[in-house]
């Protein structure tokens, strides 16, 4: 299961900021870290890189979120296709 560390640039308004934090705190795939200066550290454990990315995209789409910036990605448990196809 891939592990992702990310930083969320939180909304400027307190209500929107709280909504983002609440939403993330209710998601069992997300571990919340420190918040400072409008930035929140999170760790995401999703069954696949794809699902993790979809989760980050949904956070990005929340009102007022400036950006979701990945900082760490361990995909050692995920095995992308490795068998070579014919070359030409």
């Amino acid at each position: 299961m891939p592990i992702t560390g990310a930083v969320v640039l939180l909304p400027a308004t307190p209500q929107e900021r709280q909504a983002v934090v609440t939403r993330l705190s209710r998601d069992s795939r997300v571990l919340l870290g420190p918040e400072m200066g409008g930035r929140l550290a999170i760790v995401v454990e999703a069954p696949s890189t794809h699902e993790g990315q979809e989760l980050l995209k949904s956070v990005q789409a929340m009102t007022g979120v400036g950006a979701v910036l990945p900082v760490f990605h361990d995909f050692s448990d995920e095995h992308p296709e490795v068998e070579p196809r014919s070359e030409e």
């Binding site: 299961m1 592990i3 992702t4 560390g5 990310a6 930083v7 571990l31 870290g33 420190p34 918040e35 400072m36 200066g37 930035r39 929140l40 550290a41 999170i42 760790v43 454990e45 910036l69 900082v71 760490f72 361990d74």
Partner: peptide
């Protein structure tokens, strides 16, 4: 190992947050 990776991920994110 997973705890270790989790900790690494959180350390990296926290470092980026706090600077």
């Amino acid at each position: 190992r997973r705890d270790f990776l989790r900790q690494m991920a959180m350390t990296a994110a926290s470092a980026a947050v706090t600077g």
